[in-house]
């Protein structure tokens, strides 16, 4: 079976690669952004350097990062690990601020009540602050997901295959078909990420649904 002259099995395989290259860094980036964001809210003076510092990473052009990273990591230029690391950096750039702001959005009286009940700092963070930060974090995560899906396609230029490979292929062969299929694939993936994040958020925030 084929779609606009592109073999469907190939599209599915590329889509799967794309999914992993965008999705895994999303999770790793989130896992790193949570402690960083927390640190930024713990001490007032840490907020500007941490949030601005990580935010700046986002301005590094992706192609440059894909090419520079092997030098830092000692990996081969074609290694997908370069892409995974680069995408984690971009996720971290977007999510550190999100997590910090989400934690700051937890109402002061709720935090104080938790302390007054006898929560230690770590336990309070896990039991009260973090669950209440979920809605804001989730909004930031949706932005990061779309951004990742879009940026990953550039990795085709350094030979890491995913849906972006259809663009280079279409360009080389001067064919519209693969480009259109690539765009559709990216959109479908972005929508998929969005739905999954929404669903998980719903499950984590039953109080939000019933409040409305």
């Amino acid at each position: 079976m084929s779609l606009l002259g592109v073999d469907l099995a190939t599209v599915l395989e590329l889509g799967q690669d794309h999914l992993l290259l965008a999705g895994v860094p999303l999770l790793v980036g989130l896992a790193l952004a949570i402690p960083l964001g927390w640190l930024a809210t713990r001490r007032g003076w840490l907020y500007p350097p941490l949030v601005a510092g990580t935010g700046l990473l986002y301005t590094i052009p992706s192609l440059a990062l894909f090419i520079l990273l092997p030098g830092f990591l000692g990996t081969r230029i074609l290694d997908p690990v370069n892409v995974l690391v680069a995408m984690t950096v971009y996720t971290l750039a977007l999510l550190t601020r999100t997590v910090a702001d989400a934690l700051l959005s937890v109402p002061g009286h709720v935090r104080q009540a938790a302390t007054a009940m006898g929560y230690g700092p770590a336990r309070r963070f896990l039991a009260v602050d973090l669950p209440l930060a979920v809605p804001v974090i989730s909004a930031g995560l949706r932005v990061a997901a779309v951004s990742n899906v879009s940026i990953v396609s550039v990795a085709a230029l350094v030979g890491v295959s995913q849906l972006g490979s259809l663009f280079t292929d279409g360009f080389n062969r001067n064919a519209m078909g693969p480009i259109v299929v690539g765009v559709i694939g990216c959109v479908v993936l972005a929508v998929l990420f969005d739905l999954v994040i929404l669903l998980v958020t719903r499950l984590l925030t039953p109080w939000k649904v019933s409040a409305s």
């Binding site: 009286h109 709720v110 009540a113 009260v128 669950p131 209440l132 109080w207």
Partner: peptide, 15 residues
């Protein structure tokens, strides 16, 4: 934990 504490807006955990 051994002292109860009640505040103005109840400060309940919304979640």
């Amino acid at each position: 934990r051994s002292i109860g504490y009640v505040i103005q807006h109840a400060g309940l955990f919304p979640h």
